[in-house]
Write a protein that binds this DNA or RNA. Sequence first.
RNA 1: GGGGCAUUAGCUCAGCCGGUAGAGCAUCUGCCUUUUAAGCAGAGGGUCGAAGGUUCGAAUCCUUCAUGCCUCACCA
Length: 492
Amino acid sequence: MSEKRKELFGPEIDSLIKELEDHKTEAYPLIHFNDRDSADDIKSNFEQFEGKKVRVAGRLITKRLHGKAGFATMLSGGVKLQIYYRKDAMSEEAFHRVKKLISVGDILGVEGTVFKTRTEEITVEVQDAVLLSKALSPLPEKWHGIENVEVRYRQRYLDLLMHEDVRNVFYQRFKIIKAIRDVLIAEGYMEVETPTLQDIYGGALAKPFVTFHNALDQELFLRIAPELYLKRLIIGGLEKVFEIGKAFRNEGISLQHNPEFTIMELYEAYGNYKTMMSITEKIFDAICTHALNGNEVQFKGHTINCRPPFKKMTLEEAFQHYASVDIHQLCHQEYTREYLCKEEMRMDKPFSWANAVDEVLKKKVEPHLIQPTFLYDYPLPLSPLAKKKSRDSQWVERFQLVVGGLEVGNAFTELNDPVDQYERFTGQEEARSKGDDEAHTFDQAYIEAMKFGLPPTGGLGLGIDRIVMLFTGEESIREVLLFPQLRKREDI
RNA sequence: GGGGCAUUAGCUCAGCCGGUAGAGCAUCUGCCUUUUAAGCAGAGGGUCGAAGGUUCGAAUCCUUCAUGCCUCACCA
């Protein structure tokens, strides 16, 4: 116990607490310091506050001592506010407290008068100061902050504390999600929540996380997508629904992938993939207006105009234009082999039309799509939940929105024929039996639901994290997640 | 999982061809009543990621491992 205590707090902890108590100062007093003024308010409405008494609380982030006076900066509500204290404007006790007992990193509350220094900085001249919470660990270096990315992610609180630009990324994230939610509600969609623990996972092609429920004595999966539950709601008569939440995929971690990520899915009865294009454009328009204050973002060295309308291209056109290949011919193994050879590409997965199309799409087409582009009309084998373009077609009504080379959205006219759905599931099961562990599972309960009649429906999914990356110019998904997944470590 | 790079004081980083471990910030002690990366003078602070190996001698060279980043592959 005492060894652990010493290891955690160091040998000086007791003398520190004693020194505070000798000066009648508690390290963690029972004070919550209410009736505060906002630092942001004081700084943006200086004229109203000048000469007035204010109460402000925050964390001390720098201290500049000048003998019998001093300046310090506190971080209060995300805003930096300078405080000034001098010996002859406060009690002996209070002066000693600010000068000696309260150090950089501590949380304090001050009362004082607002003024401007000769360098025109808005400052509070302190009359009284109280320690609200003592910091036992020192803050990182004030100029460079933390540059070790691992420490930044593991101790995100320090990252946020030290780096205003990091705080801004997450404020932007909040504004983007709010803009999406607000526009959807304004358009008449109802926000819902569906299970993240599912006994059959589906709605995407991916490997799941597996867990176990003790009381039910059964395996459960963390959802890879909310899709199949949201479509049950459409069957249930909730005609316009959306959900913003986490999905979980047990796959690699990369600049664009985190095991858990935020997805927005919406479904609309009597809609199709064209109506999904139009709602997608409304969403991007709202983000530009409410979270960007403009039309353009800088991403990977490109200037991207995110204000709709967006370019539209069929997959066939895009393959012809960017890859000089006939998408239909990719179903012939020999043709595909020659093409891949010519382009110096290799395909790890077994040959099929779907895999060949996917390979060329990822390698040769999407990297060229910098400005927002709807790629539409997809091969059926890639899309087991989308509706065919006609009875015997090998094509489905589906689009993906690609921006900055990133897939940020995916939508289709939902497959609402239960017999066709049965056959698609059966086809996926065959693929699974041949070793494709990302094939869609056979979901009998979903087919039972479809037998009651799914209206013609359009559905859309947006990768929220990737959209945030785009609008904040961050090239790594970890920079837009507060706590990205890292390997477990004991110490921090 | 494959390949490349990194790991030195609390933080940010130097450390050349192998020869007793360095700076700035932070901390501590003085001085300093409009500074803002405040300043001046002084002090303390290290199992050089871990374990082996080569060597008279390793932060430095070699091997293995750990962690992170980048890159490749797949889902948004």
